[in-house]
Simulated scan of single mutants.
Amino acid sequence: MMNSLYIAGEWLAGQGEAFQSLNPVTQQVLWTGEGATAAQVESAVQAARQAFPGWARRTLDERITVLEAFAAALKNHADELARAIGEETGKPLWEATTEVTSMVNKIAISVQSYRERTGEKSGPLGDATAVLRHKPHGVVAVFGPYNFPG
């Protein structure tokens, strides 16, 4: 049984419907597992909401350190990740390698975006003042296409 769900700091097996990932070129079974149930998804969302205040209390430098450690881990496993992406999507190795590089580079792009989009900006707008404020939204989910699994 594959423990593929990371919820509240623990790896768990899915309790939902069984499925398998096939190499789109050879149709070879790459792995099998179970999806999450609605209750497991809800548990993951609740765990993320509970973790958010602690994450938000960290300094910017502490958060950047965590993100840079993630980027370093991606770099350290780049070949392995590229092979997995290629097998899962049918992408040629050069393209899968480019995707891993994009994942690594996204960290610096995200940090730069944070710096550009935080705080408050104001300026004159006719006989009034325009004010732009950026505030965190809290827990969000990001769904990407299967062919860009990173």
Score class of each variant (00 low, 15 high):
Ala38Lys: 07
Leu93Gln: 04
Glu120Thr: 15
Thr37Tyr: 07
Ala108Pro: 11
Leu22Gly: 07
Glu116His: 06
Leu132Ile: 12
Leu81Ala: 07
Asp127Arg: 11
Thr101Gln: 09
Lys106Asn: 09
Tyr114Ala: 12
Lys135Pro: 00
Leu125His: 10
Glu10Asn: 09
Glu99Pro: 01
Arg83Asp: 10
Val66Tyr: 09
Gln15Ala: 13
Leu30Pro: 01
Leu93Val: 02
Gly54Asn: 14
Thr98Trp: 05
Ala141His: 02
Pro53Asn: 12
Gln112Phe: 09
Asn76Ile: 04
Ala8His: 14
Ala130Asn: 03
Gln50Thr: 11
Ala36Met: 06
Val45Ile: 15
Ala51Leu: 06
Ala18Met: 11
Val100Phe: 05
Gln28Trp: 00
Gly35Glu: 01
Asn147Thr: 01
Gly90Glu: 02
Ala69Ile: 04
Met1Ser: 15
Phe148Tyr: 13
Pro124Asn: 07
Glu88Trp: 00
Glu42Leu: 05
His77Cys: 03
Lys106Phe: 05
Thr118Val: 04
Asp61Ala: 15
Gln112Ile: 03
Leu12Ser: 05
Arg57Met: 14
Leu60Gln: 10
Ala82Thr: 00
Gly9His: 13
Glu34Pro: 00
Leu132Thr: 09
Val29Glu: 06
Ala56Pro: 01
Phe143Gln: 00
Glu42Val: 02
Gly14Met: 03
Gln20Cys: 08
Ala18Phe: 12
His77Pro: 04
Phe19Ala: 03
Gln27Glu: 13
Gly119Phe: 04
Ala8Leu: 13
Asn76Gln: 15
Thr98Leu: 12
Asn105Asp: 14
Val131Arg: 10
Gly126Leu: 06
Asn3Ile: 08
Thr98Ile: 08
Glu95Ile: 10
Lys91Gln: 07
Gln15Asn: 09
Glu17Asp: 15
Arg133Val: 10
Ala130Glu: 04
Asn105Thr: 03
Arg117Ser: 11
Gln50Arg: 10
Arg63Cys: 10
Met2Thr: 11
Thr98Tyr: 07
Val139Arg: 02
Gly90Ile: 01
Leu12Arg: 15
Ala13Val: 02
Val41Cys: 13
Ser4Val: 02
Pro24Glu: 00
Ser102Gln: 15
Glu62Asp: 15
Gly126Phe: 06
Asp79Ile: 02
Glu120Cys: 13
Ala47Ile: 12
Arg83His: 15
Gly16Ala: 10
Ala69Phe: 05
Pro145Asn: 00
Ala141Leu: 06
Trp94Glu: 04
Pro92Gln: 14
Phe52Gly: 13
Phe52Cys: 12
Val66Asp: 11
Asn3Trp: 07
Gly33Asp: 05
Trp94Ser: 04
Phe143Leu: 09
Asp79Cys: 01
Glu62Leu: 10
Glu34Phe: 06
Ala128Met: 07
Pro124Arg: 11
Ser113His: 12
Gly138Ser: 05
Gly54Leu: 12
Ala84Gln: 03
Gly144Tyr: 00
Thr32Arg: 15
Asn147Pro: 01
Gly144Arg: 01
Ala69Met: 09
Pro53Arg: 08
Asn3Val: 07
Ala78Ser: 14
Pro124Val: 04
Arg49Thr: 09
Trp31Gly: 03
Ala130Met: 07
Ile64Met: 11
Ala38Arg: 12
Arg115Trp: 07
Ile85Pro: 00
Thr101Ala: 10
Pro136Val: 11
